Computed example of a mutant assay.
Amino acid sequence: MTEQEFIAVFAPLMEEITGNVFTQDQLDVTFADLDIDSLNQIEIINRIEDEFDCQIEDSTLRTIRTPRGLLDHISKSISPA
């Protein structure tokens, strides 16, 4: 998955759920600084998991702090072995 593919899914979700526009230069901004509270973060991640047909363990979810962290984890989980 490319950065652009991730942003194409993440940006509309962010805008729908939070009302905030997301741009590529915000990939390394924390979810908190993007005004994404924990419930919104869970909703966004659940919908990202559905979109990319992957599952992120709860213990891993607690370590993901930025959209890039989410992108990196999903890229690793859907990459062919």
Rank of each mutant, 00 (worst) to 15 (best):
M1V: 04
T2S: 13
T2A: 01
E3M: 14
E3I: 14
E3Q: 15
E3V: 14
Q4G: 03
E5F: 01
A8H: 02
A8P: 00
A8R: 07
F10P: 12
F10D: 11
A11I: 09
P12E: 05
L13F: 11
E16K: 15
E16C: 10
I17H: 06
I17D: 09
I17G: 07
T18C: 12
T18Y: 08
G19S: 07
V21M: 12
F22N: 15
Q24L: 11
D25R: 09
L27D: 09
D28S: 13
V29G: 08
V29L: 06
V29S: 13
V29C: 02
F31W: 07
D33Q: 13
D37S: 05
S38P: 09
N40R: 07
I42W: 13
I42T: 15
E43R: 15
I44L: 13
I44E: 08
N46E: 11
N46K: 06
N46M: 13
E51I: 02
D53P: 00
C54I: 05
Q55T: 10
I56G: 01
E57C: 00
T60D: 15
L61W: 01
L61T: 02
L61M: 04
L61F: 02
R62Q: 04
T63I: 05
T63P: 02
R65F: 05
T66Q: 04
T66L: 03
P67G: 09
G69W: 01
G69Y: 06
L70W: 05
L70A: 07
L70D: 06
L71N: 01
L71K: 00
D72M: 11
I74Y: 00
I74T: 01
K76H: 15
S77V: 14
I78R: 12
I78S: 07
S79K: 13
P80D: 05
P80G: 11
A81I: 10
